[in-house]
Write a protein that binds this DNA or RNA. Structure first.
Lengths: 223, 223
DNA sequence: TTCTATACAGTGATTTAATCACCTGTTTAC
DNA sequence: GTAAACAGGTGATTAAATCACTGTATAGAA
């Protein structure tokens, strides 16, 4: 990616870009690189070194927490045009928990290293505010997830998941039961059993690594 | 509370106060009032009108979410010297969920009305950043709570709750089982049964609206 | 004082979901 | 071609939430 292209891309994040001086823009350019991730690749974790702020160009990232026993719960996803802020958590003093970030699909991002981001936060109040604003947006995302987990029964949550996938990518869903379990903060067996139950009800058709929604109406009745 | 006292009190919140102009400080003074709340009083909810930012002077506030069926889960508490930001959620565009705030003890707060806060956010980037920074801090608090609920078994969470109360207010805990259940996002019966189990183990002594921790060591073994 | 409504707490039964143990079939890497 | 890793299935057990009902202490009204 050449510099001109990078500038053009970053200007699509006005909250971040608009209040930078020309000098700061050049500084950002010097401290970013384009990185490609493959599906399932870990981008950020508690022990791995901190990678910085990701401006996602394509693909999809999954941000999650993990228990000591390895149980995962997905907090939210980061889509193209959005920013992954928690991958810079090493320079974010307000963030006191450990989050993990994986690529869910082949993904490309413009990555600003944490040192440069930290420098900008120190010097430019608008960058600090950008950082905190991104956190606030994700706070709301996490609250949505939390309410789902705490207040909705498992069958309803699975139905919501299937429905969202249907809207986003059509009636064929290519996730393993394990991946769905991680997304919903549940266990693989529980997902398998509920999918089989949905299949008996005629809502979906289940086969290896593929779930087909065959009755949208019946699915919507479960929301 | 006279103006001089108000100024002195608000200056203890440097993130908020430091970057205000003299004019803005006067504006804040004109748009704040001291309010007292009694234990159990609701301060903020989805339907009640938005009260604004609370700079807590004394007491303790409880911030929580509620399901449609009325089940409550406490997100965090706001102590003296801290700020309750979600009570101004009507003017916070990034906050898309409904939170509730109650006074847990007799509490006193300096309250800045939402209109004035919104005006300041528009005009002063430091105030906007203060607002977003407060949200980011509470984001971390909520993540702590979420990890407790999702990853720790109920007996451990109850032990942690009792231990925290022991450290804060001594060995006698004056909450009803219902209040503890709300705090832990559980049900009253579950709390009652686990307390009885703890009592059989010799950790606590349970009586009406009162739990006495009689063996700190045994309690700490359960953490 | 006594009555009564209400808040608080105890308990068995049931249901939901998570966990455990173990199994089969399929795909992938060497 | 074979082993290892991955995907999925199933029964048994356990944890916790929920439901339905009971008794009891306490504050306020009669």
């Amino acid at each position: 990616m050449e510099v001109r292209e990078k500038l053009e891309f970053l200007s699509r994040y006005p909250d971040f870009w608009r209040h930078l001086s020309e000098e700061e823009k050049a500084f950002v350019c010097h401290n970013t690189e384009v990185i490609n991730y493959h599906p399932g690749q870990n981008i950020h974790s508690a022990d791995s070194e901190c990678i910085g702020v990701l401006f996602v160009k394509s693909g999809c990232l999954r941000v999650y927490i993990m228990s000591e026993e390895g149980k995962e719960v997905t907090l939210y996803r980061v889509s193209p045009g959005e920013v992954c802020i928690l991958s810079a958590s090493c320079v974010l003093s307000e963030i006191t928990f450990d989050a993990y970030v994986d690529a869910e699909e082949p993904s490309e991002a413009v990555v600003l290293n944490p040192f440069a981001f930290s420098k900008l936060i120190e010097k430019n109040i608008y960058v600090e505010n950008f950082s905190n604003k991104m956190k606030a947006i994700r706070f709301s995302d996490v609250m949505w997830t939390m309410q789902q987990i705490l207040f909705f029964s498992f069958d309803k949550r699975l139905a919501i998941f299937l429905y969202e996938e249907l809207i986003k990518n059509g009636p064929i869903i290519r996730y393993s039961h394990m991946e769905i379990a991680k997304y919903l903060g549940s266990a693989r067996e529980v997902v398998s059993r509920m999918l089989k139950y949905f299949e008996n009800e005629g809502v979906v058709k289940v086969s290896r690594k593929e779930i087909e929604i065959i009755d949208k109406k019946k699915l919507m009745e479960r929301l």
